[in-house]
Simulated assay, not measured.
Amino acid sequence: MDNSIAAIILTKNEEKHIARCINSIKGVCEEIWVIDSFSTDKTCEIAKDLGAEVCRHEWKNYSSQFNFGLYECPIRSEWVWRIDADEYLSGNLGMAVKTALARCDHGVNGVFVRRRIDFMGRPLLHGGWYPSYYLKVFRRGHGECECRWMDEHICLFDGTTITVDDGDQVDANLNDLTWWTEKHNCYATREMADLLMAEYGLDDRGANVEAKFFGTEDQRKRWLKKRYAKSPLFIRPFINFIYRYVFRAGFLDGKEGFIWHILQGFWYRTLADAKVYEIKKRFNFDDEKIKAYIRQEYGL
């Protein structure tokens, strides 16, 4: 079996992270493609020095940028690995995936790997955040990134999947909280659009992951997202916080866990709800006008 892999990394001013990311996949990925959104720091120079191919492309959203790399770059490898610039491979994950690809059945077109989030230097091992498995590796020509504004996943056109859990794909951003909150303010706008699309059933065209509670991690997350979108504004962030921090034992991750669950589980989701409310109030809660606005501004 051909187990050659091309990594696709999206970047915008990632000079703090890009070397760590690329070094973690060297010897695992035969090709490394960096799709850069016109960085103004040394991201591109560092990536090129480490042997990556760099293409520049204007940013619209994550899915369109990733799929640009997937379809427009002259990738030669059999497999594609989706990895963000602030992520890296830990343990033996890279070589374990290479071995699994060399041995897998011809009908296998995707690989789920275990993802871990580190926040303020601490791994978040509770609150339902770990262990979690995501489809990060897929056979070229048999999958792409689904077209959504938020929580986009890799979807397969056909075939089956396997899971490799010998190590983690670690999300460990090194920027400070000021940067984090500014980024999540932008995320909240995308989340607002995604929530309104889900509430009004406007996201079906871009959604390729089936919403299923008893399914993969991606399918269960999509099922929960649809239910969340139909829950009452401003109450749902509070419920989310209590569920993850108390009932899923997020408090066991110490002060860093407390900050994470307050900011990511409550503040960020409350901000997204406030933006949903702002849009609804602007159009006097007229569903048809709201849907027309969403289609015009955020249609995919």
Results as ranks from 00 to 15, higher is better:
residue 270 T to K: 02
residue 183 K to Q: 13
residue 52 A to D: 05
residue 218 D to S: 04
residue 187 Y to G: 13
residue 226 K to T: 00
residue 189 T to E: 15
residue 174 L to Q: 14
residue 177 L to Y: 05
residue 242 I to E: 03
residue 162 I to T: 03
residue 112 F to Y: 15
residue 177 L to T: 11
residue 235 I to P: 07
residue 182 E to V: 07
residue 261 H to V: 08
residue 67 N to W: 07
residue 214 F to K: 12
residue 238 F to L: 14
residue 239 I to K: 10
residue 299 G to W: 03
residue 197 M to V: 07
residue 293 Y to T: 00
residue 167 G to A: 07
residue 240 N to E: 08
residue 251 F to Q: 05
residue 58 E to Y: 07
residue 121 G to L: 08
residue 176 D to V: 08
residue 72 E to A: 08
residue 222 R to D: 06
residue 18 I to T: 07
residue 179 W to L: 01
residue 32 I to A: 10
residue 149 W to G: 04
residue 91 G to W: 12
residue 254 G to Y: 12
residue 170 V to M: 02
residue 298 Y to H: 09
residue 276 V to W: 01
residue 69 G to R: 11
residue 60 K to E: 15
residue 8 I to C: 01
residue 283 F to T: 04
residue 206 G to E: 04
residue 152 E to Q: 13
residue 85 A to W: 07
residue 249 A to K: 14
residue 92 N to Y: 11
residue 184 H to V: 05
residue 279 I to N: 00
residue 230 K to A: 14
residue 139 R to Y: 00
residue 24 S to A: 08
residue 41 D to G: 09
residue 141 G to A: 00
residue 229 A to E: 08
residue 145 C to T: 07
residue 47 A to D: 02
residue 126 H to I: 06
residue 263 L to D: 00
residue 160 T to L: 12
residue 51 G to T: 02
residue 104 C to E: 11
